[in-house]
Nucleic acid binder design. Sequence first.
DNA 1: ATGAAAGCGCTAACAA
DNA 2: TTGTTAGCGCTTTCAT
Lengths: 342, 342
Amino acid sequence: MAETARHHEPRYGNRPTMKDVAARAGVGLKTVSRVVNSEPGVTPDTERRVQEAIDALGFRRNDSARVLRKGRTASIGLVLEDLADPFYGPLSRAVEEVARAHGALLINGSSAEDPEREQELVLALCARRVDGLIVIPAGDDHRYLEPEIKAGIATVFVDRPAGQIDADIVLSDSFGGAREGVAHLIAHGHRRIGFIGDQPRIHTATERLRGYHAAMVDAGINVQDSWVSLGSTDPSRVRAAAEAMLSGPEPVTALFAGNNRVTVTAVRVLADRERPVALVGFDDIELADLLGITVISQDAAAVGRTAAEHLFRRLDGADDAPARVELPTSLIARGSGELPPA
Amino acid sequence: MAETARHHEPRYGNRPTMKDVAARAGVGLKTVSRVVNSEPGVTPDTERRVQEAIDALGFRRNDSARVLRKGRTASIGLVLEDLADPFYGPLSRAVEEVARAHGALLINGSSAEDPEREQELVLALCARRVDGLIVIPAGDDHRYLEPEIKAGIATVFVDRPAGQIDADIVLSDSFGGAREGVAHLIAHGHRRIGFIGDQPRIHTATERLRGYHAAMVDAGINVQDSWVSLGSTDPSRVRAAAEAMLSGPEPVTALFAGNNRVTVTAVRVLADRERPVALVGFDDIELADLLGITVISQDAAAVGRTAAEHLFRRLDGADDAPARVELPTSLIARGSGELPPA
DNA sequence: ATGAAAGCGCTAACAA
DNA sequence: TTGTTAGCGCTTTCAT
């Protein structure tokens, strides 16, 4: 152990490099590079010798070095709210599939709906020089991304428009979906309809509320303040909001739930009551068919796929004006939305 | 446009480098590096000038170059089966949180249960020199990882033991959980109990089947071949298997579902029948409480967290013998598992 | 067909 | 406190 580490030596726990492979195979460095990258101009015999050295040493190309030279990382970043949310799993998976088809890896991070954390994540991804970025915005000001986009990081926003910045955007028709859902309840005889949604700083929450109002106005119904509640999707908050709307002298006879988490809690609240209350939820949920829950369904995978396809179009050089794609939602009637007023 | 690109110039769409910042601020390169990395030894005044240049140019450190020098990427890889599966979302999120606490990014990929794709993904992550790797094995031979592990990439396997390789492993007690679930059915009077599980090459599937057999043997019940079906979790396959077991002269009176996807389909099949059939499923499912489904619950987030913590212990230098951690499962009785035989 | 040399943007070591 | 130099492992260019 008389070895003296004279100079710095990161070497990743002592991995062989192309130089090592070259030495062992008795060829030049560039020849190894050619073999590793399947470039032409190597005789079968040389190639075999190089390959043997690669296998013997357990060589694996260091992509960090490669990236440094080539300028492209063959990776894209996805910043979403929470991977544990059943809406984002399929979305992320769809993005991954498209990335894979383009030979790229996906790095994703959860912002936990915190604008600061979103920025932190996005900048970390930029520092790693991802080729492109798909962002489900938590914050409402994305000017911090300007230098990045100018520097060539293609960016697509999803689910909510970006603040203060011009870029491609893919979203579901929150307004139209909510409007349709609420109109559905009205068509089944309801007039006093409650709306429970996510925090007002979240774009989809206000869009869906706008859809609710539009449907009510269309029907000539005067919305009472007490019928609307925006806030955290924490079960206790949602439960309290629902119970408030369902009690008192003039309780609502139907509820519109602004997203999947609200729906889940609403279903639980309604399960505890004897008087039937109609319910339509935004977002489909697993097993909702068995529980007979009527929902406005949005296709998370389609959203992810569309966003990723737009991103790679940009990466392939498309430079037309930023597009805004709005994907339709669909109402799935399963019973809870068709209950008449009690 | 008389500009001639004489030499190669990747430069990431023309991003400023530390050199550019240094020139603009009128300082040396290393001083910029110090400011960017918050190293000591810079006067407040110099720091301010450098920071101004950074902001003006929109400089962002290139982590590829940094990694190349430092040897650590501050990122870990997670290879799982399918991010769209509700079991893996929370698991991944838990890993991400631990990584974040250690200042690392998470790169994850879905193997789609394909051993080749798993290897492809893992090697891509290794080429990017992730510091560590958490793998939910799809294949049963991981010798291809030997050079990587030897080279210092810490690795933790999750959910299923790795094939042919010695490494940390974190899993749920599939055997014990299934045994408990089946014993629960037996305790409620069942003797003819069906088991529908995932493909036999998946370790958890055979472990759970082993648990089933153990419980049956404990009760002195002779298991009939027709009561057991392993295979794809595709709804049509599961439906066919369930219907076969539920028909004929001596149908099963209870079903044990080997994982969340099987449970979902089983619930749908049973919903179509009038004769009540008891059901216990492995893995909890959202809304299972409302449907009264009895399950063996495993804590996906705890599995992810534990695995990540082990990984970072290794990255922090721990070199004790590979550990095998088995997390307990818990039976949640909600009604379907307590139905008596018809 | 093959290789030598330069350099991607950064950090470690060493001077000044 | 600040700057200079070398070099991480690879690809690019250009020569042989």
